[in-house]
Deep mutational scan, measured.
Amino acid sequence: MEVRTIKVFTTVDNINLHTQVVDMSMTYGQQFGPTYLDGADVTKIKPHNSHEGKTFYVLPNDDTLRVEAFEYYHTTDPSFLGRYMSALNHTKKWKYPQVNGLTSIKWADNNCYLATALLTLQQIELKFNPPALQDAYYRARAGEAANFCALILAYCNKTVGELGDVRETMSYLFQHANLDSCKRVLNVVCKTCGQQQTTLKGVEAVMYMGTLSYEQFKKGVQIPCTCGKQATKYLVQQESPFVMMSAPPAQYELKHGTFTCASEYTGNYQCGHYKHITSKETLYCIDGALLTKSSEYKGPITDVFYKENSYTTTIK
């Protein structure tokens, strides 16, 4: 009895394709271990004539594949690729409408935090270190965002349907971005203890939790000093293409032309909904596939993004 075979390709990165001759009487799992086709788990399936010449994702289970996976995804987590594939199996079914010149995501599976993050990423200057993220990001900007969303979920250790947080998501993504040249110098002034300067680099240099107003941050924000008295913390120097200011959701007025974009969060910790506000020729609110415009805006804002380049204080 002759062994019926077909020729397929296996890959971990969709760049390096490895030619395989597979036995049609055995499952993919018996031949390769966990195997995925377009995100779908085909591990328990036997090869079919229609699979001839198709590319299958496999887990990096030998040295060659491990090197290829690390170079593309910059992670050695053995569960990463499987999590990416199972997320992709959902995100490829989502709709990605162009809204006001940006790629958004039609609401499904509690994905409003991903839509808000995706919209924000198209408006701030950011370059990702893992080629996987950078490639998928370019495709997302062009309207094909399924891979990018699935990668975000995998890097953030999230599953489809789980509630997510924009600030946490951005923080994970910033860790995989090139923020080497970003720098922030802060000064804390206390009447009792004097003053202390701190220099922050990388992710810490672009994120701040405690106030939404970048102007206020430049002037000074009140913080408790270690001595128990009130101290003032203010920005001395900022070198970065953008800054992200966050605070627990509270009524906040966004003035046209003073910011790049913002995240609105309605609801409580267990259950809520994100919308995205962007400042173009007027203010726009993007909620999944829905767009509304207004000249002014007041609502429960939790993150505001500002364009920056270089700032030095005039406070002496």
Rank of each mutant, 00 (worst) to 15 (best):
K233I: 15
Y138N: 15
E52W: 10
L200G: 05
A115Q: 10
Q31F: 12
T116E: 05
L290W: 11
L283E: 06
G267P: 13
T313G: 09
V8C: 11
S50I: 14
H48G: 11
H51W: 02
T55W: 09
A177L: 04
P224D: 10
G164A: 03
V3Y: 11
M85Y: 15
Q270A: 10
D303V: 06
T19S: 13
Y208N: 08
S294R: 14
K219V: 08
V185I: 13
V236N: 00
V206E: 00
T292V: 08
K46F: 10
T103H: 08
Y57K: 07
P60A: 09
R83A: 08
F242L: 01
C182N: 02
C271Q: 14
P249D: 06
T120V: 09
H176Y: 14
A150D: 00
V160C: 08
S213N: 09
N187I: 07
N129E: 10
I6D: 07
K307G: 05
Q270K: 12
Y137L: 10
V22R: 03
L173C: 04
D23V: 12
T226Y: 09
Y113R: 07
F242W: 13
A154L: 05
L283K: 01
E264D: 08
Q216F: 03
P241T: 06
P97L: 12
F305H: 01
L254F: 08
N268G: 14
Y96P: 10
C193M: 06
A250P: 02
E281P: 09
Q31S: 12
E281N: 09
P130G: 03
S263W: 03
Q196I: 10
R167C: 02
E281I: 09
A262W: 03
A87C: 14
E264G: 12
P131V: 02
E68H: 06
N89H: 11
L186W: 08
R66Y: 09
I315G: 15
A231S: 04
W94S: 02
K201S: 13
D23F: 08
A289H: 14
V243N: 02
E239K: 09
N187C: 14
S240G: 06
S295V: 07
F305Y: 03
E204I: 02
M85P: 11
Y234L: 06
F56G: 03
P131H: 04
S104N: 06
K280S: 12
Q98S: 08
V3E: 14
